[in-house]
Amino acid sequence: MQSDALQGGFTDAPVQSAQAFRAAMNAMARPGRAETLDAATPPNPVSRAAGTLILTLCDPETPVFLGNSHDTPAIRDWITFHTGAPLVGPEMAAFALGDWAALQPIAQFRSGTAEYPDRSATLIVEVPELRTEGAVLSGPGIQETTLFSLPEVAPFQQNATLYPLGLDFFFTCDSQVAALPRSTKVEGT
């Protein structure tokens, strides 16, 4: 393990993870609206927001899948050291991290069961930017509609048809995060 793996974690885990969770919760509760997450400094190319999410939500109970865009020894060591999360293949993962291309096809992830739809993966998708333009989002958490820069439209429409099963997404860029749960209806523009 490289000594870099020991760096970039929380300096005050109870407080920083509480603050980070509130940002993540607000994001998941209000799809398409960006929040700030900057407490962690993970190895490149992991964004601060994605690193903070991982430290906040992952531990030995949550298997993590790394897409090939993010599957480096430094990132593996960093996640293992700071969270103890086992690194696994996509079909076992509770969380997945990567850019959009590296997580394809998203159908490989668990989307829950009819009795336990919560047993589904949460994907942390690193994106080049988060903008309030593009796809039209509606559904729980959104007063009427909101615009959001999704990497594609069709896969998210497809995901929403599985409801109440399906995947939930965080989109991260630098120290910003926005989310898209399975309950959100997506329209192209």
Binding site: T56, L57, E61, T62, D118, G141, D168, P181, R182
Partner: peptide, 14 residues
């Protein structure tokens, strides 16, 4: 807390 937080996020998603 992490376990509860994960449950809250899934609750919000469904």
């Amino acid at each position: 807390k992490r376990m509860i937080r994960r449950a809250i996020l899934k609750g919000l998603a469904i």
